[in-house]
């Protein structure tokens, strides 16, 4: 078994899961909304990146700037048109709303881009030797950027004024409101930041993976597993769990084939639920 190959491959895959899981955690923490459409925003961002680079023949960095920004604007629209109107309604309503949104986005993406796979073979091609293993540069860059942004958002939440406001809205919205925090604006900004993170993850996925409109549903189930294994609402837990699950998926796929391999994640998720419902690091909230 090529241990180093599998370990590095798994860790690199985990980077994107970490970024997605942090975005989902952020949105859930502040708004108590699970965004089922997160994966589809990622897929549309990835497809848009391909269109920008291949269709419009613009440089890749244009996509890095434009796509997350576009996703943030989209997030603002979703918040204003949908989520804000069902604040305070039973949780089932926001679940159904984002689930429905996810279906709409997938099918609109299929209408626009068709059902087939596309990719960005020319961007960040080539490979490096790391620990005696050939690693493709695109995966390395996407891993570095994903982990970098995840850590940056964590830092933002822990050490800035904005982060303090976000955390207080997530723990005690009434008290935050009394203390003069504009909770509606914080919620709006958080949701926009969360969708921008999904969009950035999409940009990073485009050069490293084959992209199609169904990509979102494959990524989101793994991001969900990451969140449960890492402990809901815990950023260090999510990053650690993402890397762990990335490795498990790659090793599982190597041993049992790609289809069954990704199912290993869920067996781990079930085991964690039964044994440590607060997540592996024990830092998540009791669910």
């Amino acid at each position: 078994m090529p241990v180093a190959d599998l370990l590095i491959g798994g860790i690199l895959l985990g980077g994107v899961y970490a970024l997605m899981a942090c975005g989902l955690n952020l949105i859930f923490g502040v708004m108590r909304v699970i965004n089922f459409a997160d994966g589809d925003i990622l897929a549309i961002a990835a497809l848009s990146t391909v269109s920008i680079a291949v269709g419009f023949k613009l440089p890749f960095w244009v996509a890095i700037l434009v796509v997350p920004l576009g996703c943030a604007v989209f997030g603002v629209l979703i918040h204003l048109l949908i989520l804000r109107r069902i604040e305070g309604a039973p949780m089932i309503m926001s679940l159904l709303a984002t689930y429905a949104l996810s279906t709409i986005l997938v099918n609109v993406a299929i209408l626009i881009w068709g059902g087939g796979y596309s990719g960005l073979p020319g961007v960040l091609s080539g490979s490096l030797r790391v620990l005696g293993v050939n690693v493709s540069i695109s995966r390395l860059v996407s891993f570095a950027c994903a982990i970098g942004v995840s850590l940056a958002v964590w830092w933002l939440l822990e050490f800035t004024r904005f982060g303090r406001a976000v955390r207080s809205v997530s723990r005690a919205p009434e008290l935050a409101s009394i203390s003069g925090i504009a909770i509606e604006r914080i919620r709006l900004m958080t949701f926009a930041l969360g969708t921008a993170m999904a969009g950035f993850a999409g940009v990073l996925v485009a050069p490293a993976f084959a992209v199609d409109p169904q990509l979102g549903s494959r990524f989101i189930v793994k991001a969900f597993a990451v969140i449960i294994v890492g402990g809901m609402g815990s950023y260090p837990g999510a990053i650690a769990a993402a890397l762990l699950l990335g490795v498990i998926e790659v090793v599982g796929s190597y041993l049992a084939g790609a289809v069954i391999g990704s199912a290993f994640l869920f067996l781990l998720m079930l085991a964690v639920l039964l044994v440590r419902p607060r997540g592996l690091l024990g830092a998540g909230m009791r669910v």
Binding site: M91, V221, F224, A225, I228, P277, V287
Partner: peptide
């Protein structure tokens, strides 16, 4: 053992498995 949203995402993932 999961409540509300976590039950939803757990079952969602399980079906894909």
């Amino acid at each position: 053992r999961l409540k509300g949203p976590f039950f939803a995402i757990g079952m969602f993932g399980l079906t894909r498995v």
